[in-house]
């Protein structure tokens, strides 16, 4: 239940006129103020190539401003493709609309007209970011200012100040002049996050942000994302592999299966044995940790003696 005790939209004013759709999780918290929709997907579909099979089919959901939605699902379910479609990086059908938060007086969604405008609203962190050799951390982070610069302009004082603030916030200042290729995995994930934050976009898309990290660094990065989300009132959509972390950090989960939205709701409604066993096609057991969040344990399929494990 701990995921639900978190306010739905931290920092959002109490009485904000919502858009035309009901925001927040289905059957969400009765006490939470209605938050404006930040990202709205309407029948989004993706296919690669003209004749390729669709990898994402007709997916619709809303994410409220300040909310964290985790996309889960087995390999090849379409999580990364849906993220890229949301960021406008792949051709897709349907619409992705953004509503400015929190003063969405008109509440009208609009389509971002150009990559530049879109990059000012949506920052995207790839699963395996490209790290140009010979580029310093400071240079890499400054690339995040691209959408704020004119065609022929270089970074100015304000851009360097924004980068300095973010480097400071993520405890990266001392690495500024270091070569990217000389950074460790955990530091790199912070560097990549720093570049996304310098974009000053209100929506942050993360594709498997912890896949290359060990246990401690993985949790560290997720805690950092959560803090930043509260500090800056970011809306976060992340593709996640680790179901336990997804349930612990996200407000809502969306389970994709073969490109379709199979389940959608608060972690406790999605992380259940029937749902997970069905879509991951392997028996699982869902336990409760001391803080009440779900712990998903895959069971061995070849040896039956695992059944005698005691219930908590």
């Amino acid at each position: 239940m701990s995921a639900l005790t978190r306010p739905l939209a931290p920092g959002a004013p109490a009485a904000v006129p919502a858009g035309d759709r009901p925001p927040g999780p289905a059957g969400g918290q009765p006490t939470a103020a209605p938050a404006p929709t930040a990202v709205s997907l309407d029948r989004v579909g993706v296919r690669y190539g003209r004749s390729g099979p669709p990898v994402v089919r007709d997916i619709s959901f809303d994410v409220a401003a300040g909310e964290w939605l985790a996309l889960i699902g087995p390999n090849g379910a379409g999580k990364s493709s849906l993220l890229r479609a949301t960021a406008g990086l792949v051709a897709h059908t349907g619409t992705v609309s953004l509503t400015q938060a929190p003063q969405a007086g008109d509440g009208s969604p609009h389509r971002p007209p150009s990559p530049r405008t879109r990059a000012r609203s949506i920052a995207y962190v790839a699963q395996q970011p490209e790290l140009p050799p010979g580029m310093s951390v400071a240079e890499y982070v400054l690339l995040g200012r691209t959408a704020h610069l004119g065609w022929l302009r270089a970074e100015g004082r304000a851009d360097r100040r924004a980068a300095a603030d973010v480097l400071d916030r993520l405890d990266l200042t001392r690495f500024g002049s270091r070569d990217l290729t000389a950074m460790s995995g955990g530091e790199l994930q912070r560097v990549v996050l720093a570049r996304a934050l310098v974009q000053e976009a209100e929506v942050l898309l993360l594709d498997e942000p912890t896949s290359a990290l060990d246990l401690g660094h993985g949790i560290g990065v997720l805690e950092l994302v959560d803090e930043l989300r509260r500090d800056r009132n970011l809306t976060v959509i992340s593709a996640m592999h680790d179901l336990g972390s997804a349930g612990r950090f996200a407000d809502r989960l969306a389970l994709l299966h073969q490109g379709e939205l199979a389940a959608h709701g608060p972690p406790d409604e999605v992380l259940t044995e029937p749902i997970l066993s069905r879509y991951y096609q392997t028996p699982v057991e869902v336990l409760r940790s001391a803080d009440g969040t779900a712990v998903v344990v895959p069971l061995r399929t070849t040896r039956p003696n695992t059944q005698k494990r005691a219930q908590p």
């Binding site: 400071a138 300095a164 480097l167 690495f175 002049s177 270091r178």
Partner: peptide, 10 residues
């Protein structure tokens, strides 16, 4: 502020 590498970037 040469230590953060920003002034010398690019």
């Amino acid at each position: 502020s040469a230590d953060d590498g920003l002034a010398s970037a690019f």
